[in-house]
Every structure is written in structure tokens, then in C-alpha cells.
Design a binder for these strands. Structure first.
Length: 478
RNA sequence: GGCGACGUAGCCAAGUGGCUAAGGCAGAGGACUGCAAAUCCUUUAUUCGACGGUUCGAAUCCGUCCGUCGCCUCCA
């Protein structure tokens, strides 16, 4: 049973999708006017992991992420660079995929764009006007928050509370200061579309209500995004969608915490942001991903290079064990010496049980990683034991151990394992390294340390690492 | 001003009423090794921001205070 924290109810709830074995989820994607920073990357990785886990648990997951490719910021940026707004948006969509791929984020099932759903949006706005939830002023259309009774239910505040502390600029034309634009009339030279209210473009919030319900149905299961979207973006999405359809919008709302720098929120306005591609120059994609998953998704996560470096080493520990399993599996079975196979199978069962119970509890990736570390330790102890003599059964158990680690840490958490490390996929390299190992063994027998060390050093320069163990010399690619 | 979150070892981080407070990184000592790498063992919080309270029992519940941060405006 999966439990997840629902922002709507402010508590952990058992997850029950509307249709058994099928999950429909929507995650707010970026406004494509520049490259994404680490704060933008967190929801990508978090919800990608949620999706992978749901799939692992047997759900058929339909996963939608939008691109906001029409927006004031895009227009502004395009004017600065003196290029077409659409071209700018397209450029950053392709840049987005480069970063997402580097973080091992799987592709969504659809990436709807605002620019391709103008008709749907206009139809929804019409409907809201007809139902008296919206009104037209001078070519703009506003949503009337007072008409929607439940306004504020997601962010936990009432309209009157918000009014008292309002920092909102009062627009005297609006019926309530918190009324927000569904349609904005365009100024000359701005990208625009024809509508019953004149030339203009959609407001920010309506796109998500329209596109999510178009692809997922009027009621769907999970809606995700960063915690800063709770108000007003998601609050407004709910108001529009439920006013329009008279159905519940999303059942479960999930929000990730912020990335901070020196404990302050990483944001474009503060200027304290680090682009994903900048970080990727120093650290691998799966190190960044591992770091993002080292803390529970709802907690704040502070960024600095030392923390990345720390996580890089932690991750290496898991990869070392995976390599050790691979190296051992490449050996031929020998006469067995007992029940190390059973011990291994027991560890595998323990890993699966602990991993699932951690992830079932609101996707506790930090705890799931602890289970992976304990498993790695068990494998290291077993394989490095002096009396370890893998027989056929033991090798079979080891194969299951490797496959399980690959499936959980790789397939769900997204760690990249080089499955071909020492596998026979490259027979020639394998043979050549084997020859060098034998030559070096002879040198070592003769205490010719210069030759032995030269072989080891030169191979290291080629990306091949030799490790001497009581059971012979192992090798792996670095 | 309104609403909310957080404060666990040198660092990162689980744990939200009950065995000796997970796990990782770093440090110290040891084992293995010709050296190295990897690995293993031991060690590192009598204590969970502070002070009170509830309880047989609290890091975990309640209160007060201190500190940090967030949302209320574009933001993942």
C-alpha cells in the first residue's frame, strides 16, 4: 500500500487511483525562456522517480508534463534578443531535454504546449463566462474568485485573510483584487491569437487546467509541482477546472520542497541560481540525481559543491558493489563450500522489503537508499570473505542480487550502472586485460614491482583499474 | 500583518510515543596488501534548539521562548 502526503488534505493518505492499476499524473513543466536551474530540476527528478516507482508497483502510468511556451517573460526575452518568441521557446525546449536526459529523466507520455492548445483554452474560457465564473473587461477576461466557493482550499487560506495582507496591486476594474486573468489582450507587436474578446493570449493558469484535463480526464490522480506553485498557480487551476467541469480536479496534490543556497531559496529573482548544465560540468548526471534523492522530496535541500562531492562518494560505494558483483559473475563456478547462496538470497529479499516499505511511505528515497547501502555491505562482506568459493547456486544468487540492485537503484532511483563493466561484451579488451594481468602476476611473483606497477599505472591511464584480492586480481573500467 | 515549515553527531540525513537514536560522507585506530585500490572490523550524539508540562515511558504529544526559512507578487 502506497501512502502519500496530499497537500489538499495536509496529511498522508493511502493512494487509490480512480481506475485500478492506472495512474494519471500531471506535473507542471517549465516556462521556456532560459535554461533550467537546479531548483527547476528537483521536481523533474522527484516526479520521474515517483512515476518509475508506480510503474514498478504495477501501475500503468500516464504521465503528462506541459511546456509554457507563451508568456510575458518569453516575449520580453525574445525582444531583448531580437528573435521570434516562438523560436526562443522552441530553442529552450530542446535545451530542456538535454538537461533532463543528463539527469536520466524518462520522457513523459505527452508534452503539451500552450501554443498548440489555444482553441481548447478559448473554449474553456467561453464556458466559464457562460457559467458566470468569469467576466470580460476591455478585451481581458478575469476569473471571479468570489464565485468559486472553495477558493483557497489548497493553500489553506480564505479570501478575506488574503485580502488583509494583500500585496497585490489593486486594479480597480476587477471585481476582487485576487481575480486573475484567463485571457490577456495583446499590445501591438506581441504574439496573439484571435478570440471572441479580441486579439490576445491566455493567462498563465488556464493552460494547465485545460491541458491536464484534456489528456487525463476531468478528474485525475496526481498533480505535482514545486511548493511555490501552491499559491496562486495550483489554487487557480483548481478553481478554473472545477468551475468548468463541476468535477473534482486532481485527487492528490504533491509538492516538492525548495533547493536553497545558504539556506535561502534558489530563485531567479534572487540571482542565486545554478544552472543544471553548469553543475554537470563538475559532477555526473547521476551524482546530481542521487543528491536530489538523498533527502525526502518535501524537505528543503541546501546546495553547495561540497555536498555534491559528498554524494558523489556515497554513490561510488554503491557502484563499487555493483562492479564487484559483475566481476564475480564473470568467473566460472567452482566447487561450492556451503550456503553463501542462501545468505545472498536472504539479503536480496531484505533489500526488496526495506526498499519497498520506504518508498511506499510517501516515496522516502533517503530511507530507500539506506536499504541499498545495507545490501551493498552484505554483498561486500560475503564476496570478500576469504572462504568465498562461488558454486553454481551461489552464482545464480549473485545474478539475482545484481539484477535486483540494477532494477531498484538503477531502474527506480536512476543510478547509472555500467552493466558492461567487465562483461564479455568486449571480448578483445577482456582478453588483452587478462593477458596483462597474467604478465603482472608473474612479475609480482618475482618481486619485480617496477613492472607490476607500470602495468597497473598504464592500464589506469587507459581507464582500467586493477584490484588485487585474495582470490586473484579483479579489474573494472573507471 | 496573515498562514506555514524546519532546528537530530564535524557534515548530509532517516526516525513522529516504548528494544542499545537508521544509513552515508569526513575523522581516528586496526585488518588485508610488496605498495595501491577496494573491502572489512572498531570508534565518533547517555542524546535529538532551550525551558517547562502530559505520560509508567517523548527526539516523537502540548505550551512558552530562541533561531532559520518559506508562501501571501513572477517563481520548480
Amino acid at each position: 500500500m502506497i501512502k502519500l502526503y496530499n497537500t489538499l488534505t495536509r496529511q498522508k493518505e493511502e493512494f487509490k487511483p480512480g481506475e485500478p492499476n492506472k495512474v494519471r499524473m500531471y506535473v507542471c513543466g517549465p516556462t521556456t525562456y532560459n535554461c533550467i536551474h537546479l531548483g527547476n530540476a528537483r521536481p523533474l527528478v522527484v516526479f520521474d522517480t515517483v512515476r518509475r516507482y508506480l510503474k514498478y508497483k504495477g501501475y500503468d502510468v500516464l504521465y503528462i508534463q506541459n511546456f509554457t511556451d507563451i508568456d510575458d517573460k518569453i516575449i520580453k526575452r525574445a525582444n531583448e534578443e531580437n528573435i521570434d518568441a516562438r523560436a526562443l521557446a522552441e530553442k529552450y525546449i530542446s535545451e530542456y531535454f538535454k538537461d533532463a536526459d543528463a539527469l536520466n529523466v524518462k520522457r513523459a507520455d505527452h508534452y503539451p504546449k500552450v501554443s498548440e492548445h489555444i482553441d481548447d483554452i478559448i473554449a474553456a474560457i467561453k464556458k466559464l463566462i457562460d457559467k458566470d465564473y468569469a467576466y470580460v473587461i476591455d478585451g481581458d477576461v478575469y476569473f471571479n474568485v468570489r464565485k468559486y466557493e472553495d477558493y483557497g482550499k489548497l493553500s489553506g487560506r480564505s479570501l478575506d485573510e488574503m485580502k488583509s495582507g494583500a500585496r497585490v496591486q489593486i486594479d480597480e476594474r476587477k471585481k476582487d483584487p485576487l481575480d486573475f486573468a484567463l485571457w490577456k489582450s495583446s499590445k501591438p507587436g506581441e504574439p496573439s491569437w484571435d478570440s471572441p474578446w479580441g486579439k490576445g493570449r491566455p493567462g498563465w493558469h488556464i493552460e494547465c487546467s485545460v491541458m491536464s484535463t484534456k489528456y487525463l480526464g476531468e478528474t485525475f490522480d496526481i498533480h505535482g509541482g514545486g511548493a511555490d506553485l501552491i499559491f496562486p498557480h495550483h489554487e487557480n487551476e483548481i478553481a478554473q477546472a472545477e468551475a468548468c467541469t463541476d468535477c473534482q480536479f486532481a485527487r492528490y496534490w504533491m509538492h516538492n520542497g525548495f533547493i536553497t543556497v545558504n539556506k535561502e531559496k534558489m530563485s531567479k529573482s534572487l540571482g542565486n541560481f545554478f544552472l543544471v548544465r553548469e553543475i554537470l560540468q563538475k559532477f555526473s548526471g547521476d551524482t546530481v540525481r542521487f543528491y536530489l534523492l538523498s533527502t525526502h522530496y518535501r524537505s528543503p535541500l541546501d546546495f553547495d559543491n561540497e555536498k555534491l562531492a559528498m554524494n558523489e562518494k556515497s554513490l561510488q560505494r554503491i557502484k563499487n558493489t555493483f562492479a564487484l558483483l559483475e566481476q564475480t559473475l564473470n568467473k566460472k563456478p567452482v566447487a561450492g563450500n556451503g550456503d553463501s547462496g542462501n545468505r545472498i538470497l536472504k539479503s536480496v529479499d531484505q533489500l526488496v522489503a526495506d526498499f519497498e516499505s520506504a518508498m511506499d511511505d510517501d516515496f522516502n528515497t533517503a530511507l530507500a537508499l539506506a536499504a541499498v547501502f545495507e545490501f551493498c555491505k552484505e554483498m561486500n562482506i560475503t564476496i570478500n570473505d576469504e572462504s568465498f568459493r562461488p558454486d553454481k547456486d551461489t552464482l545464480q544468487a549473485l545474478e539475482k542480487a545484481r539484477d535486483t540492485l540494477y532494477k531498484l537503484a538503477g531502474g527506480i532511483l536512476g543510478i547509472i550502472f555500467k552493466a558492461e563493466d567487465t562483461a564479455a561484451s568486449d571480448d578483445l579488451v577482456s582478453e588483452l586485460v587478462q593477458i596483462l594481468i597474467e604478465v603482472r602476476q608473474n612479475a609480482r611473483k618475482n618481486k619485480d614491482w617496477t613492472t607490476a606497477d607500470t602495468i597497473r599505472d598504464r592500464l589506469k591511464e587507459c581507464g582500467i583499474i586493477l584490484e588485487d584480492s585474495p582470490q586473484g586480481t579483479r579489474w573494472k573500467k573507471s
